[in-house]
Computed example of a mutant assay.
Amino acid sequence: MRLWSLHPRYLDARGLVALWREALLAQAVLNGRTRGYRHHPQLQRFRQCADPLQSIAAYLWPVHAEAVRRGYRFDAGKIRNSQTSPTLPVSAGQLSHEWQHLIGKLQLRAAAWLERLTCHPALEPHPLFTVVPGDIAPWEITRSSK
């Protein structure tokens, strides 16, 4: 499961579809509707919110909006709550780590998409997040943490 802190506009078609599916799975986990993935580290930041279901819904809406912008037909009826939620912090280090991770994925599967992205040097976070100073998040699994 990868719930990107980066804005969904950076994801290629395959990445955006995967994000939609994984965020819907996260919503089901947070709602207690599945047995798997209950302890997934990516869910920690949502569980720490006053209303985790509201936060994951607020995460899903911009993913849906990006899909609509591209002409995809993601079903908004699958999102359980409204669009508003307090923003969550994401460290600049986490955002940079995810950008490097995404570059690696895109080099393998969507080089033309990556070429388009390199024209935009300022990283924008997913609208749910506000960038704060800091390193990679403690819940992130990296080569050095394995």
Rank of each mutant, 00 (worst) to 15 (best):
M1V: 12
R2I: 14
R2L: 13
L3G: 01
L3K: 00
W4R: 14
W4H: 14
W4D: 11
S5R: 15
S5Q: 14
L6P: 11
P8V: 00
R9E: 12
A13Y: 05
R14G: 11
G15I: 07
L16V: 04
V17N: 11
R21G: 13
E22W: 08
E22Q: 15
A23F: 07
L24S: 02
Q27K: 10
Q27Y: 07
V29A: 00
G32P: 10
R35V: 05
G36A: 06
G36I: 04
R38C: 09
P41G: 06
P41M: 05
Q48A: 15
Q48L: 09
C49K: 12
A50E: 13
P52V: 01
P52M: 02
L53R: 13
S55I: 06
S55V: 05
A57S: 15
A57R: 01
A57G: 11
A58K: 03
A58E: 03
A58M: 02
Y59W: 05
Y59H: 06
L60P: 15
H64N: 10
H64V: 00
H64F: 08
A65P: 00
A67K: 00
V68G: 01
V68W: 02
R69A: 14
G71V: 05
Y72N: 13
G77M: 01
G77Y: 02
K78N: 02
I79V: 10
I79P: 05
I79C: 10
N81F: 06
P86K: 11
T87W: 08
V90R: 01
S91Q: 02
A92K: 15
Q94Y: 00
S96L: 04
S96K: 06
E98N: 05
W99Y: 14
W99N: 13
Q100L: 15
H101A: 11
H101Q: 12
L102C: 11
L102I: 13
I103R: 15
G104M: 13
K105H: 06
K105G: 09
K105Q: 14
K105D: 11
L108K: 14
A110F: 09
A111Q: 13
W113D: 06
L114T: 01
E115S: 15
R116L: 10
L117F: 01
C119W: 02
C119R: 14
P121T: 06
P121I: 04
P121Q: 12
L123C: 07
L123D: 05
P125L: 01
H126K: 09
H126F: 10
P127I: 04
L128I: 03
T130Q: 13
T130L: 09
T130V: 10
V131S: 03
V131Y: 02
P133Q: 09
D135F: 03
D135Y: 01
P138E: 05
P138D: 03
P138S: 04
P138V: 06
E140I: 09
T142C: 10
R143H: 11
S145G: 09
S145K: 13
